[in-house]
Design a protein around this nucleic acid. Sequence first.
DNA 1: CACGTTTTAGAACGAATGCTCTATTATCCC
DNA 2: GGGATAATAGAGCATTCGTTCTAAAACGTG
Lengths: 189, 189
Amino acid sequence: MPRARLHSDDTVLDATAGILLAEGARSASVKAIAGASGAPVGSIYHRYGSRDGVLVALWERAVRRFHASYIPAEVPGPDPVATGVAMAASVAEFAHANASDAQILMTLRPEDLLDGKESFERLNAGIVGAVRRLGDALPVDGERVRMAVVDLPYGAVRRHLAAGRSVSPALAAEVGAAAHLLLSDGEGA
Amino acid sequence: MPRARLHSDDTVLDATAGILLAEGARSASVKAIAGASGAPVGSIYHRYGSRDGVLVALWERAVRRFHASYIPAEVPGPDPVATGVAMAASVAEFAHANASDAQILMTLRPEDLLDGKESFERLNAGIVGAVRRLGDALPVDGERVRMAVVDLPYGAVRRHLAAGRSVSPALAAEVGAAAHLLLSDGEGA
DNA sequence: CACGTTTTAGAACGAATGCTCTATTATCCC
DNA sequence: GGGATAATAGAGCATTCGTTCTAAAACGTG
């Protein structure tokens, strides 16, 4: 019944991502998004309601893709250490394969993107739960587990992304080896 | 000869930091800084030249303070592993003792703060050099060293700061213990 | 006490921003 | 083909922003 869309969601969101990564968080104005995507301002408001709406959609798309790669089918699974190592390594793999989404999630903050105060905490529930279940299955303490499968991969990947470099495919193995060390040693801090 | 300042540099920079941490990177307008600090718009421009000038001064003050705590007098020193552990732990100690500066440095990006394209790379030269010298004195590979004394402490501290929590005094010991594990094992990734 | 210098003080300006509004165009169903 | 629906299209509005400008106030020095 309706008129067909000339500009797909992915077109608009990809254009928005391109602006953000090239010019910084403050640069994604509605006019800039319209210019880069080809969609007119009216269409953007018709579809997303507000500038924040576009950025929320972009963020949610990136989170959805990240979750698909980070959270294994079974946590903790038969070998919790191996599961943790795979989770840690998958962060680097994701950043290597999906640089644009990784940069958005790891180098930008929603507070700096949005005018409103929308929180994305709810999107992290799956990750928080998986890490907690993993920790319960391991003898090392919870803080150590979070360092191994969250903080260390995050920091290592972000160091490269923030400097504008792409993430080398070898980083996943190095992150995995480091996580293995942290998860295997029995002495919690 | 001149008129005395009614509003010190620290007053203006502290007010700017307060706005940034409460409202996000986009919120530190000159008008907001003037309102929060008491200094009129004209004084701010007289002293800092531009809005970017205020934020650059704020950033540089935070970096100066961080360097004083992070870079030891001697690198690598007689016991390189102990030096690396101390560096890693000092990140958490700094974040505990100096929450405001740590939040600025670890959760905000200069690109999102400034209108111009000023780079702060030069401010990191001291850190980069110290980490490289430490790595040269250790048998593990350089990427592993960077993970232990940069990425892991950064990720662990940022996880707390980004969630709005303060950094517990116990975190330094946990970070140090994890760094010790990573620096002691001979197998580079 | 007058002079030079620096800071304070805030009104005013052009540019940019998020958003609204009206009109037009395309598509599907009957 | 006629009508309902939804997307396109961009001019226009109120607001906010960074910055500039002019004027006055305070302080040390001669």
